[in-house]
């Protein structure tokens, strides 16, 4: 079944690359939306339900770590899977994000295969 996605990254190029890579991974993608930072993402999450949110960490206005915390307090996001997509790769940071409610972590640079490996167990 096709899944809806919210992609959150301050780079519009990176949002397009993430979208293209997920489509190349073979996962069934439905409706999609984009946000340029955590604040924009909160507004999108209030207005619409998403199956997945793919989220950068270092962003202006509101970063990914704060967004995860706020999203997990929103009833609208109860079933939204949150996957962090970032160049940050320290174990301590990743453990903290997973403890705060993120469901997975993908490091940049990435491939369609990496997206498939990380997302397919959560997709169904």
């Amino acid at each position: 079944m096709a899944k809806s996605l919210l992609i959150v990254d301050d780079s519009s190029t990176m949002r397009k690359i993430i979208m293209r890579t997920i489509r190349m991974s073979g996962l069934d993608v439905g409706a999609t939306a984009e946000a340029g930072n955590g604040l924009e993402a909160i507004e999108k999450l209030k207005a619409e339900r998403f199956d997945f949110m793919l989220c950068d960490i270092n962003m202006p206005e509101m970063g990914g770590a704060e967004l995860v915390q706020k999203a997990r307090q929103m009833p609208e996001c109860g079933n939204t899977r949150i996957i962090m997509v970032s160049t940050e790769s320290s174990e301590q940071l990743i453990e903290g994000l997973l403890a705060n409610g993120a469901n997975g972590y993908i490091t940049k640079p990435f491939t369609p295969e990496k997206f498939h490996e990380k997302l397919s167990p959560l997709w169904n």
């Binding site: 780079s11 190029t13 990176m14 690359i17 270092n58 160049t87 490091t107 940049k108």
Partner: peptide, 27 residues
């Protein structure tokens, strides 16, 4: 946007390779 992302990804990859010796760095 693309050039910013290239710099971001190269430094992220470098940080993962070298953090053991460089210590903790924020980007």
């Amino acid at each position: 946007d693309a050039m910013g992302e290239v710099a971001n990804m190269v430094l992220g990859s470098f940080k993962a390779r070298a953090e053991g010796e460089l210590g903790k760095i924020q980007v």
